[in-house]
């Protein structure tokens, strides 16, 4: 069953399309990843789904409720963790949850039970009486997840839930997310630009320049790349590239100072490749399974984190460090 349905959704700012005619469905109970570089339209889409923004055209519904005409029902059906913290720093952790529970009209006794339960779930029970301005980034995020769950939403939206957190905290947040899906059957809609995290999703949609350019399970998306990714450096990349095209009828491409090529059974292919390139000096070669990052590069011709990393130099540095 589809819990979220989006049809021809468009959001324009002046002449610029932030979201450009997107349509897709999210199935009840899945972890759905919304993947794309910064500025691709992820947050705009989430804000429309959360009733914070009006779409220019198109329709979106959550659990059967239209996001523009049936706001209160939508708001009762969803929980949200925004990209930026949205806690009241002058209230304690417990008070932040209590405010939320009151705003969602949860009867007092149930509210207090759930607050205790959720604070324990996210390991913040000991800190419940501390002002949240004294919380660390990870604690804030965990409290926000607890808050988003307090009114038992059908869908939990997580906008970049792990951005700016250290790897340990990120893993912990992910444990919570998986637990929620498995034990509570909550649908989770999350945005991220961390490719490794997207692998945890049941299905992912890749969005770029406001358009959905791919939507499938991570496995299927990678399958589309057919085979293994072989990366090699030679004394003459241009010529070696030509040889690969003509001898094996493959589609290699050069990026920075390496040649990239996808081939079936990479381990068996490498010896053949060496024979074909015997006239050129091969300085390095690697074979690996493609990742979602490779899927993204294949689809858009660029790295997902270019925009976030800033200068090309830093991007190179990252590629090299891998």
């Amino acid at each position: 069953m589809n819990i979220i349905e989006i049809k021809n959704l468009t959001k324009k700012y002046g002449e610029k399309f932030a979201v450009d005619d997107i349509s897709f469905e999210v199935i009840e109970g899945e972890i759905f990843g919304f993947l794309g570089p910064n500025g691709a339209g992820k947050t705009t889409t989430i804000n429309i789904l959360c009733t914070l923004l009006q779409p220019t055209s198109g329709i979106a519904s959550i659990s059967g409720y239209d996001v523009t005409n049936d706001r209160d029902n939508v708001r009762n059906s969803i929980g949200i963790v925004f990209q930026d913290p949205s806690l009241d720093g002058d209230l304690t952790g417990e008070e932040n949850l209590r405010f939320h529970g009151m705003a969602y009209n949860i009867p007092k006794q149930i509210r207090e039970e759930r607050i205790t339960y959720l604070l324990e779930m996210v390991d913040l029970y000991d800190k419940k009486d501390e002002l949240t301005k004294n919380y660390s980034g990870g604690m804030k995020r965990r409290l926000e997840i607890a808050r988003g769950l307090l009114h038992h939403p059908k869908v939990l939206f997580l906008d970049e839930p792990t951005i700016g957190l250290d790897p340990q905290t990120r893993n912990r947040i992910w444990e919570h997310i998986r637990e929620l899906q498995e034990k509570k059957g909550i649908t989770i809609f999350l945005t991220t630009h961390y490719m490794e995290e997207a692998e945890n999703c049941n299905r992912i949609a890749i969005i770029d320049h406001g358009k959905i350019i791919a939507l499938d399970t991570p496995e299927n998306l990678k399958k589309d790349l057919k085979g293994d990714l072989i990366t090699l450096k030679t004394s003459d990349n241009e010529k070696a590239n030509e040889v690969l095209k003509t001898c094996f009828s493959l589609n290699p491409y050069i990026k920075d100072d390496s040649i990239y090529v996808y081939a079936d059974n990479g381990e068996n292919f490498v010896p053949k490749l060496f024979r074909a390139l015997r006239n050129y000096e091969i300085t390095s070669v690697s074979v690996r399974k493609p990742t979602l990052n490779d899927v993204f590069i294949k689809l858009t011709g660029r790295e997902i984190r270019e925009e976030t990393m800033g200068g090309v130099g830093r991007m190179r540095e990252m590629t090299r460090g891998r």
């Binding site: 209160d72 708001r75 009762n76 969803i78 925004f82 949205s86 939320h100 705003a103 969602y104």
Partner: peptide
């Protein structure tokens, strides 16, 4: 934002 997405 927390207030704006609440059903109030």
């Amino acid at each position: 934002k927390e207030m704006l997405v609440a059903p109030i």
